[in-house]
Design a protein around this nucleic acid. Structure first.
Length: 240
DNA sequence: ACGAGGATGCTCT
DNA sequence: GAGCATCCTCGTG
């Protein structure tokens, strides 16, 4: 896939695209590009781009959501303290936060201003700027390892807390629909790595893509843990 | 292949 | 103090 800078710029997604439910935006982002333009000085820009192959939706009234519980129910007022407040920002705003004290995770805010919702970008198929990504991710051994996880792709794209609450429709980090006309063979599952609301099928990914993250959906992971615990208990009983 | 554990910092109870 | 929207390395089969 050859990517031309002008073409990518002309396909830029605007705030109207994100001005709806996260449950609509998350699947709609599959097949689109996440783009980063790095200023090289002398007026030229270096392009980093990846085709989105995995997303997750997070919604108001969602116990796994960072905005959960910050609305005062009797009055309907939003408590202005806490990190979740940023999720009420206008559509297309970046919500970037540090996970496990180690990894930055990129979300894009959805819904009109005053309603919370976001989509987590979980995995990309690298399309442009391969050398730059490899440089930023020395642990990656193959092209697949560059962006197949939410913490990996922010590393590859050099996205961090400084981009929190920046505008993803008008800035150097944006989404583009250029070159993405082919329909995506989409599948869904429960979200990954969460402990609450694990039954909601709000993860969207390209079926059979080699570039989706290796994570296990939380409902399946929980069932596995239960089985392991049970097996261990039975062995202990037989042995003792 | 798969499982265990450590790194590391912010948020909320 | 606990609990994370993770990733990597190093053990064992």
């Amino acid at each position: 896939m050859v990517v031309m800078l002008q073409e990518v710029r002309s396909g830029r997604l605007d705030s109207a695209f994100f001005d709806r439910s996260a449950l609509e935006v998350a699947p709609a982002l599959l097949g689109k590009l996440l783009v980063r333009e790095l200023d090289e000085g002398n007026g030229s820009a270096r392009l980093i781009a990846g085709r989105i192959v995995e997303t997750e939706a997070y919604m108001q009234d969602d116990p796994a959501f960072h905005a959960w519980g910050i609305v005062d129910v009797p009055t309907g007022l939003v408590k202005p303290s806490g990190r979740g407040y940023a999720l009420f920002a206008p559509p297309g705003t970046a919500y970037v936060y540090l996970c496990y004290g180690v990894h930055w995770l990129l979300n894009v805010v959805t819904e009109r201003e005053g309603i919370a919702g976001c989509v987590l970008i979980r995995a990309l198929e690298p399309v442009a700027g391969h050398e730059h990504m490899t440089q930023r991710r020395p642990a990656a051994r193959t092209r697949i390892d560059l962006c197949n996880g939410p913490g990996k792709l922010t590393q590859a794209f050099a996205i961090s807390g400084v981009h929190h609450q920046t505008n993803l429709c008008t800035g150097p980090i944006y989404f583009s629909a250029s070159g993405c006309e082919d329909p995506v063979d989409m599948a869904t599952s429960a979200r990954i790595g969460i402990s609450r609301a694990i039954e909601r099928p709000w993860r969207f990914f390209e079926r059979d893509s080699a570039f989706v993250s290796p994570g296990i959906p939380s409902d399946i992971a929980a069932a596995k843990r239960r089985k392991r615990r049970n097996d261990r208990r039975l062995r202990t009983k037989l042995g003792g």
